[in-house]
């Protein structure tokens, strides 16, 4: 009897070969074509190229959420199913933002429903349970989430797309699937609400003004 094992090593090369996914190389136009044609390496490349962008959109709208990996999957599966309908290939990034915004908003509705139903443990959706306040950065992030979490979905989304993603108002309106005028109204309300909320948090306001150092006010 012979036994051969390889721990962490390449599979044996003799009689059988594991199919290795072909690596896709190309720009966005080629990537879209490859996705439409079902190129074996295109899906992975699509994800690798845009996952961070999509995650940024999801996290900025949702704050901390243990379902971010599932939501990433959701966005990319939706995109893959609709890639044949994509007309402006050079706007792949904005197109994905639209998908991410849609999925994030759906997730917010799911969260609201869960809270209302009390089906799930409240801890599961409480941001503070997911954050570990061990640094100024985390503390600031938590404050930001707290402020944004109190804003209506439409205003929050408008605010985040405009100031975090820095996309044009037109693109942002498109991502929200609304008119430019409506988007501007939402943004204006969001800005006002954000300023007001920050004013109520002097330490956070100071952090925003002065940099990364968090100063506790002694009373």
């Amino acid at each position: 009897m012979k036994l051969a094992t390889s721990a962490g090593f390449a599979p044996f090369q003799d009689r059988f070969t594991l199919p290795t996914p072909l690596t896709f190389v190309g720009d966005d136009a080629a990537l879209v074509e490859a996705l439409r044609a079902g190129h074996p390496g295109a899906a992975a490349k699509f994800y690798d190229r845009y996952a961070e962008h999509v995650r940024l959109t999801l996290r900025s709208i949702l704050g901390p959420d243990e379902e971010i990996p599932d939501l990433l999957q959701e966005v990319f599966i939706r995109a893959l199913a609709r890639v044949r309908k994509l007309r402006e290939v050079d706007r792949l990034s904005s197109w994905l933002t639209t998908m991410a915004v849609f999925v994030a908003r759906a997730q917010i509705r799911i969260r609201s429903r869960r809270r209302w139903l009390r089906v799930f443990s409240p801890e599961r959706t409480r941001p503070s349970q997911l954050e570990q306040p061990s640094s100024d950065a985390r503390r600031a992030l938590r404050e930001l989430h707290a402020v944004l979490d109190r804003m209506p979905i439409d205003e929050r989304t408008a605010f985040v797309l405009r100031y975090l993603h820095k996309i044009t108002l037109l693109e942002a309106a498109e991502a929200c699937e609304t008119s430019l005028a409506t988007f501007k109204r939402r943004l204006a309300r969001g800005e006002a609400r954000f300023r007001e909320a920050v004013r109520d948090r002097p330490e956070f306001s100071q952090w925003l003004d002065e940099g990364t150092r968090w100063t506790e006010k002694k009373t």
């Binding site: 961070e52 996290r59 900025s60 999957q73 950065a137 930001l144 975090l164």
Partner: peptide, 21 residues
């Protein structure tokens, strides 16, 4: 806000799990 999210230590894990799924 963007920098804070990008530097979040959970980013790698979330991206990896999302990729696998």
């Amino acid at each position: 806000y963007r920098d804070l999210i990008l530097q979040d230590p959970r980013a790698g894990d979330e991206l990896r799990r999302g990729r696998a799924a």
